[in-house]
């Protein structure tokens, strides 16, 4: 027995409300983030991730208030992503009570930002979020997309994962753009390939529709943590059920 695989519910937050899109569009309202975070904590979530998808700069301050409120009553690690593009953004989130920030587009724009952030705050709080899409099937190739999946970068996802590790990322949050919102399961070859190539923890994301998908992320994708949104939001499954299911399949989890 030792380190447990983590289950991380994710809240996509738009102007202070939780929403969940399918393939990054078609947004449904799923409730109050503080209330939902509280429920996830009680159900045994290992961490909680907030992705702020608010488009306007002014709207972004709402996520700071959400984090502040959650951090005052939920004592598990909190990650905040979405629009993090300066040292000042990171400082603001950590000060509000976040433990880690997820950097996405800003890293693609300027990879050195990840280096600076890691030097400044330590790798332990720097998560690099990678949105990858399949661009070739034989052999399999994935490319990085930014801006909520709308903009191709021309960067190979596996090479990018290795580079971000060297630049000081403490963890990678890998989302398959092809699978996200489909409920057909993770892109397992993507997760497996990245996990074989980097020596830092990897969170698998995008596509979870059943509890078996969570298991596959660990057993076939070799992920250190699995992230899901909609199956938990709409209470199809509780986190407790998910963990029990994984434990029954022989995966070490925190029960």
């Amino acid at each position: 027995m030792g380190l447990a695989k983590r289950i991380i519910p994710c809240l996509d937050v738009d102007k202070g409300r939780v929403v969940k899109g399918v393939k990054f569009v078609d947004i449904q309202d799923a409730g109050d983030p503080v209330e939902i975070a509280r429920r996830y904590d009680q159900e045994g979530a290992d961490e909680i991730t907030f992705l702020d998808i608010t488009a306007t700069h002014e709207g972004r301050d709402t996520i700071v208030q959400v984090v502040e409120q959650v951090a005052g009553e939920v004592f598990i690690p909190l990650t905040v992503g979405g629009g993090i593009s300066s040292i000042e953004d990171i400082r603001k989130m950590l000060h509000a009570g976040a433990d880690k920030v997820a950097i996405n587009s800003a890293a693609v724009r300027k990879p050195e930002f990840v280096q600076h952030a890691a030097q400044h705050f330590g790798s332990q709080c720097i998560v690099v979020a990678i949105d990858a899409k399949r661009v070739a099937s034989d052999p399999l190739k994935w490319e990085i997309f930014t801006h909520g999946g709308r903009k191709a970068s021309g960067i190979d996802a596996i090479e990018w994962a290795k580079k971000m590790t060297l630049y000081g990322a403490g963890e990678l949050l890998v989302t398959s753009m092809d699978c996200d919102g489909t409920k057909n399961g993770f892109d397992l070859p993507l997760m497996y390939t990245i996990n074989q190539q980097v020596d830092i923890p990897v969170i698998a994301s995008g596509g979870v529709g059943t509890l078996q998908h969570l298991v596959e992320g660990v057993t076939q994708g070799h992920a250190d943590a699995v992230l899901a949104a909609s199956i938990f939001h709409f209470q199809e499954y509780s986190i407790k059920e998910a963990k029990q299911y994984m434990a029954d399949q022989g995966i070490e989890v925190r029960l």
């Binding site: 290992d46 403490g170 996990n195 020596d199 923890p201 250190d224 943590a225």
Partner: peptide, 11 residues
Amino acid sequence: SYLKIPHMGWN
């Protein structure tokens, strides 16, 4: 494979 570093999570 090798164990990931940092040691991160619930032990």
